[in-house]
């Protein structure tokens, strides 16, 4: 109970910070919206002929969701390094709050910001003419999965921030996302991939997250894809949260 209450208190603090310093959030919103518009504009008309995708606007929507969520999730690590450098992190360690709440608040704030951004992205995609097979319930599921993805992915940046205290290193956590995204069926379905790329893509958890989200938009309630996607997000969460907890323990021990 105490953990949950303090996590929410610290989440509110992180959200206030985002509202008062909106530049980062504007950047996080611009990148996925821009790439969505450009990619759909460039490939949309030939997608059916080239690789059999009739609703390319819907096909690209999960990519924008993941880009946006990952961008938002990079914020927690960076903000954590700023807290460490300013000494505020130490002040939080000196309170009686459960220490996991200190990182949990930041990560949960990323989840909330991601939900807001994903809602915006879905609205834009619908305005562009994207279909949505699973209707409003599916839209809510997609937006929430974007939030959960951000919550999980932010663990990478936060763990790096806690381990190194370096803003540059924490931002590198966000850059890790790009190889993962481009080694997945981002622009075309898996069945048109070269064999070597398909092998890599099938070992990449982002592939299953993307396909699960894509099922909501273009495929309908395909439970197999949805379960695999959910498992991939949660699996990633287990790994990143474990990394974060270990890094927190190391930093809190103080040497």
């Amino acid at each position: 109970m105490r953990f949950l209450r303090d996590t929410i208190l610290l989440m509110n603090r992180a959200l206030r910070e985002a509202i008062r310093q909106p530049a980062n959030e504007i950047g996080n919103a611009f990148i996925p919206l821009f790439f969505y518009a450009v990619t759909v504009g460039a490939v949309g008309d030939v997608a059916r002929e080239a690789f059999g995708v009739s609703d390319y606007k819907g096909f690209q929507l999960p990519v924008a969701i993941l880009q946006g969520a990952a961008g938002v999730a990079g914020g927690a690590g960076l903000a954590m390094t700023l807290d460490i450098q300013s000494g505020y992190f130490e002040k939080l360690l000196l309170t009686s709050t459960p220490r996991l709440a200190i990182v949990g608040g930041r990560m949960l704030a990323d989840g909330v910001k991601s939900v807001i951004l994903c809602t915006l992205i879905v609205a834009m995609a619908l305005a562009f003419g994207s279909g949505f097979e699973t209707g409003p319930v599916g839209m809510v599921a997609l937006v929430l999965s974007g939030g959960v993805f951000a919550l999980c992915y932010s663990g990478i940046g936060v763990a790096i921030a806690l381990k190194t205290g370096s803003p540059q290193a924490a931002q590198a956590g966000f850059l890790l996302f790009f190889p993962l995204l481009f080694l997945a069926p981002t622009f075309a379905p898996l069945d048109v991939f070269a064999t070597w790329l398909e092998v890599i893509a099938r070992a990449n958890p982002v592939t299953y997250i993307l396909e699960g989200m894509r099922a909501l938009v273009t495929g309908g309630w395909q439970w197999g894809s949805l379960l695999k996607g959910s498992a991939a997000i949660l699996g990633m969460g287990v790994v990143t949260w474990t990394m974060t907890a270990m890094a927190l323990r190391g930093r809190a021990a103080g040497g």
Binding site: D6, R13, R16, E17, S86, K91, T95, S96
Partner: peptide, 30 residues
């Protein structure tokens, strides 16, 4: 940690918050 107060040499404060917000949050975290 519950029973002591500490002000370290380097003033560690969150500059985005107001004085009132910071103090209130600090109290809540205790």
């Amino acid at each position: 940690r519950r029973s002591v107060g500490v002000a370290m040499q380097e003033v560690g404060l969150d500059e985005v918050q107001t004085g009132r917000e910071l103090l209130t949050l600090q109290a809540r975290l205790f």
